[in-house]
Simulated assay, not measured.
Amino acid sequence: MHKVLVPSRSGVHRFACLALYRALLRQCSPSAAGDAPWRDETKCLVQQRFRRYKRLQSPSQIANALKAGYEAVDLLDRTSKGSQPDSHKLTAILSQAKSFKEQYAAEQRRVAELIRPKPVSPRQARKEETIRFEQETSRKHPDAPSILDRPRLNLNGKRKVPVLVNARGIPFLRIKKPQPRNLSGVIRSKLEKRWNRIVIRDRLHVDLLFAKDEDAWDHLTRAAERPTWSEEVKLALDNVYDKIRETDRQNRELAESMWNIVLEERKLAEKEDEQRQLNQSALQDRTT
């Protein structure tokens, strides 16, 4: 069997095509064409045709394309030297290519109008709905009640009991999904603030070791000062610990309040379910 040769993987073929491409672009450069009105348009046309024909594999099509490229080099060379017939021929070629491009674009627009829009898949619909929900909930509504103003005694429809969620130490009540964007931002900012304090705490522990070395050196040189280096670092470390403990205490109290809300919501949901069942049984008795 004959060996199948893929032109795009042939070094000789690639070298010939790239050499022709450079020659055509060189003819469209300011040094060769000057300020000719056809220079930019011709350069764009050369680039488009090479992108279109770069995947050709038919020997006859490749030969015709290379022949047309060599003829274009000669045509551009004669046009840049002032040949009027070649200049008119190049102008006709460019106008013809432009008209073909406009016709093709118009045909594509007509085809696009005839084709029915593709129905949105359920997954894409859910994704778009989630994006719209995040945009609507990017900011908290000014009249929105606090989450701690629960349980609500009067509701339209069946009561949905919230779920207490622990987001790495930050408690919040999840009413439904998807989660509001402003709630996600609040949780993220609290977690980043706590993590920054932890980073500062760890860095102060390292600084405390250096401060103790400074105090030892001051003691040896009898140049001790008040307050000492380690005392200042300890004060900063105690301040960071107090802030971390305070935020943890607030989160613990908030979690307890939210858990009490969940328990009360469960009790109200059970009572409402019992009342709903009694009403249904009473309605059935009346109908029978």
Results as ranks from 00 to 15, higher is better:
77 D>R: 12
164 L>E: 04
100 F>N: 14
267 K>C: 08
270 E>R: 14
71 E>S: 12
216 A>C: 05
284 Q>A: 15
39 R>Q: 02
212 K>Q: 15
46 V>C: 01
158 K>G: 10
159 R>V: 02
231 E>F: 09
85 P>I: 01
49 R>Y: 06
285 D>Q: 13
95 S>C: 11
219 H>D: 13
20 L>N: 08
225 E>P: 02
225 E>N: 08
96 Q>A: 14
199 V>L: 13
196 N>P: 07
143 D>H: 03
129 E>F: 02
89 K>R: 15
111 V>D: 12
238 D>T: 10
29 S>H: 00
137 T>P: 04
265 E>W: 02
92 A>C: 10
253 E>A: 12
111 V>H: 10
288 T>V: 11
34 G>C: 00
143 D>L: 04
30 P>Q: 01
268 L>S: 04
283 L>F: 08
92 A>M: 07
224 A>T: 15
95 S>L: 12
275 Q>D: 15
91 T>P: 06
150 R>D: 03
178 P>F: 02
44 C>N: 12
31 S>G: 07
199 V>N: 07
31 S>M: 05
181 R>H: 06
5 L>T: 14
31 S>H: 07
168 R>F: 09
182 N>D: 04
130 T>K: 01
279 N>T: 11
188 R>T: 00
257 S>Y: 03
252 R>M: 07
49 R>W: 06
227 P>I: 02
217 W>Q: 15
92 A>W: 05
263 L>C: 10
284 Q>F: 07
51 R>T: 10
96 Q>C: 11
226 R>P: 09
25 L>F: 04
177 K>M: 10
15 F>R: 13
53 Y>H: 13
160 K>I: 05
276 R>L: 09
101 K>R: 14
273 D>N: 12
111 V>R: 14
43 K>H: 07
74 D>K: 14
67 K>P: 06
44 C>Q: 14
130 T>F: 00
157 G>V: 05
8 S>A: 15
267 K>R: 13
225 E>V: 10
94 L>K: 03
231 E>C: 08
70 Y>D: 11
92 A>F: 07
205 H>N: 15
27 Q>F: 01
207 D>C: 12
179 Q>V: 10
190 K>D: 06
153 L>W: 08
28 C>Y: 04
120 V>M: 05
270 E>A: 13
181 R>A: 04
57 Q>V: 14
261 I>Q: 02
126 R>E: 12
215 D>N: 03
149 D>H: 03
191 L>N: 01
230 S>I: 00
106 A>K: 09
185 G>Y: 00
225 E>W: 03
275 Q>Y: 09
226 R>W: 11
208 L>R: 12
179 Q>Y: 03
103 Q>N: 13
169 G>T: 01
127 K>Q: 14
205 H>L: 10
210 F>E: 15
154 N>P: 06
86 D>Y: 08
134 E>N: 10
218 D>T: 06
151 P>K: 00
181 R>K: 12
273 D>Y: 09
50 F>R: 02
109 R>E: 11
277 Q>S: 09
177 K>P: 02
220 L>K: 09
32 A>P: 01
236 A>F: 08
10 S>H: 04
247 T>E: 09
186 V>L: 02
260 N>V: 11
76 L>H: 00
172 F>K: 00
281 S>V: 11
207 D>E: 15
230 S>C: 05
209 L>I: 14
243 K>L: 09
76 L>K: 00
210 F>D: 15
131 I>S: 11
272 E>I: 03
3 K>P: 08
195 W>L: 15
178 P>G: 01
118 K>S: 09
253 E>R: 10
85 P>D: 04
79 T>D: 01
